[in-house]
Amino acid sequence: MSDVLTLLLNGENRQFEAPARGALSVLGLLTELGLDMRKVAVERNEEIVPRSHYAETWLASGDQLEIVHFIGGG
């Protein structure tokens, strides 16, 4: 049985199942969310997660994540 993670994702509590073996990475989360990784940026607990670290940044319950992109603005 896999673990259930509760993440505060863009201000909302969301639950995710960790993969059968091992934990959920930022890469795994973005893939599950269906996001284009080249167009977003991720902050975990107020620290930037560099794109090159997505695969080995492991998430834990209670993590606060911000996933952002560019939109129109003045």
Partner: peptide, 19 residues
């Protein structure tokens, strides 16, 4: 061009983007 940074709309991840 100036652009803003905002949370991705997670309910519509394939919405067209500014880029």
């Amino acid at each position: 061009v100036t652009v803003a940074v905002r949370r991705v709309n997670l309910s519509d991840p394939k919405a067209p983007m500014l880029q």
